[in-house]
Each structure stands twice: as C-alpha cells, then as structure tokens.
C-alpha cells in the first residue's frame, strides 16, 4: 500500500480538530451536564477517549463514556468482506434523557450511524443523539449528517480512509489510499 498512500491529516491537525470538536460539543450543549460520549467500535473508541480527556481539561468534568458494537444491527450481513465477529458494548448507566454524542472516525455511507442509533435506542430514550466525526468523506446513502466534523475530505469510492490515533500525537495520522483487491 505504501506508495499510493497520502497523508491528509497529521498528528497536530488531528489534535487541533479534536480540541475544536470538544469545544463545539460544550458550546452546543451549554456545558457537560447530562452528556454521554459513546465511541463506535472500533475506530470511534480512541477518539471518544481523546474527546473525553479534552473536555476534562476544558471544563474540569469527567464526562461518562462508553462504546457500542453495531455488528448485530447492520443491514449488510450478506455483503462480502463483512466480518461477523462480535465486539463488546459498554454503556455507562441509563441513557434516558441524556444527550449522547456518538463518535466515529470516518463518516461514509451513513449505514454504521443508522445501526448505532438503532442500537442506542434499545438501551433507552436519550434526549438527543449528536454525531462527532473526524473525517467526513461523503457518498452518503442515508439522510444522516454529522454535528461535529474534523475535516471534510472529497474521496472516490475506490479509495479507503485510514485513521490512526494510537501512541503519541506526532504518530497520529489520517491517510487516504486506493482500496486493495481483497478489501
């Protein structure tokens, strides 16, 4: 994959984008009261954690957070390349009347978000669900949009967007590359 890979965000710009998203979440919700941050497995989990840390620095409050596996709510069970391996879901306490911020790395067709909303609603009746995304790459197939976006990136369907936010900030990156044959 190496040669066709193009870095579209480096560690610094990812960090800045997530700081801005954290501020925007607080601004929109007038603080951190009744907020719950939920990462979508697996790409959204580290991003949710970073946003929780940033909100803590800004507001001094540790917002409850969790993660959600949407495998059982997908509508593309029959598609090739789909992996049925289940992951874990962890929702902190009741979500009734809370504002949920769903966090994912890439927003593409919108089907994952649809599944995540269905899954969340099985846990209770939140006051509102908002969506925070690091990279919006377009090609939506459902009427879904993000409330907080790190960056809008025009892509073609033959491309893949990879987000890496492990380790130190300087190692973080978002790359765009051609889809490989077996992907």
């Amino acid at each position: 994959m190496g040669s066709k890979e193009k870095v579209i965000m480096d560690g610094k710009s990812i960090d800045r984008a997530l700081s801005r998203i954290a501020h925007e979440i607080l601004e929109r919700n007038k603080g951190a009261d009744d907020l719950i941050i939920i990462g979508i497995c697996t790409g959204g989990i580290p991003l949710a954690r970073i946003i929780v840390d940033k909100i803590k620095k800004i507001e001094g409050v540790e917002v409850p957070s969790g993660y959600i596996d949407i495998t059982l709510y997908r509508d593309d069970l029959s598609r090739i390349g789909y992996h049925p391996k289940l992951k874990k879901t962890e929702i902190p306490g009741s979500i009734d009347d809370k504002t949920i911020v769903l966090v994912d790395d890439v927003l593409y067709t919108g089907r994952t978000i649809r599944a995540a909303m269905d899954a969340l609603i099985d846990f209770g009746r939140p006051k509102a669900i908002q969506l925070a995304i690091l990279v919006d790459r377009g090609h939506r197939e459902l009427p879904i949009r993000a409330d907080f976006v790190g960056r809008n990136v025009p892509t073609s369907r033959s491309e893949v967007v990879d987000v890496k936010v492990e380790g130190e900030v300087k190692e973080w990156k978002v790359v765009i590359r051609e889809r490989e044959e077996n992907e």
Partner: peptide, 23 residues
C-alpha cells in the same frame, strides 16, 4: 472459541432491558 466468544457478546444482550437485536 469463536462460538464461545460470540456467545459472550450474546449474553450481554440478555442482560439488557430490551433483550432483542435485529440481526
């Protein structure tokens, strides 16, 4: 192991208030 790990995720569903998923 695949069956047992999958069952562990299924067991989580059985602890919820809505014990049903659409898969």
């Amino acid at each position: 192991e695949l069956v047992l790990d999958t069952a562990a995720s299924m067991e989580d569903i059985l602890q919820r208030e809505i014990k049903k998923v659409p898969s």
